[in-house]
Design a protein around this nucleic acid. Structure first.
Lengths: 154, 154
DNA sequence: CTAATCCCTATCAGTTAGCTAGGGATTATC
DNA sequence: GATAATCCCTAGCTAACTGATAGGGATTAG
């Protein structure tokens, strides 16, 4: 049930972009510095995010990436699906990319209790990721930082 | 977020064992026939389930595997963790096998909002899998089969 | 013009997934 | 006590995937 490093890194970078006043571009170099991700690897991730219209780019000096929409219009679920595929633990339980079970002894999908369970899991994951936007995450991060600053001053 | 085939197959086989009156042993051969899984591959899965005290075995003619406890004492969560590792999408959010984040630019764990989100996901998955026992699944399957039989008779 | 940046594709080493194979140990049955 | 069915254990193998690294072209602000 592990997230890949691509999904992990993409969410980190998008949170970083969401923390800035939108729209405001950051270069791959800057993003890599802030997150500790290998720049060339991050570049590929950004290209995929751009192809999916999650971010948009400006080339040349002073170029970089910025969110293609407001962070309140971007959910973590969308990003994770983009980088890691469907949320469901089994292809037969995916709503976005359904693939039937290959085992010939599997019961019909409607009557398969395991598929029913994987659907429950899928819905549970989606319940968290599809309702969490990057605006929400950025808000939480600001709150956490304010909290930390407070702790430090006392 | 995909389940491996080991996790998939293990749950299928354990559901099969749970459908029988416990305790009642089935051989790998029988289990493979009923599920359509490759017998030699299934053998390895059964060995792991045995090492974890989920099933117990009898060797020799008329031997086989049976549940080591009643199906009401075995959750899907335990089995999935056994075959596929922690439920959490990120090692830093695992409660059963916590591993800190390797990125040096990651904030402290307490303040990391992404970790907070992965914890939410972990809890959502665990909420489904740790409360579902194989007794429950077997019950559902019996109900589904009764339903199907009814449909057929009409 | 130049340096910074995005864009694109190829490559590559290591790991993992999903099996397959073979042979030893045990045991019910005849 | 021979036989056949079964579990037990370890090794190996191929294809795909992961997580990068590399290099060079296109674009653009200054």
């Amino acid at each position: 049930m592990n997230l890949s490093s691509k999904g992990d890194y993409a969410t980190r970078v998008l949170l970083e972009l969401s923390m800035n006043q939108w729209p405001h571009a950051l270069s791959v170099h800057q993003l890599a510095d802030r997150t500790g991700i290998s720049p060339k690897y991050l570049e590929q991730i950004m290209l995929r995010l751009r192809a999916a219209d999650v971010v948009r780019s400006r080339r040349g000096v002073q170029g970089g990436y910025e969110l293609a929409r407001g962070p309140d219009q971007l959910t973590v679920g969308e990003v994770v699906r983009l980088m890691d595929g469907p949320l469901a633990p089994s292809p037969c339980a995916s709503r976005s990319a359904h693939v039937p079970c290959p085992l010939y002894r599997c019961p019909t999908e409607e009557s398969c209790v395991l598929r029913g369970l994987w659907l429950e899991v899928r819905d549970a994951i989606s319940g968290v990721l599809d309702r969490t936007t990057f605006a929400e995450l950025a808000e939480r991060q600001r709150a956490a930082r304010a909290q930390a600053r407070l702790m430090y001053c006392i």
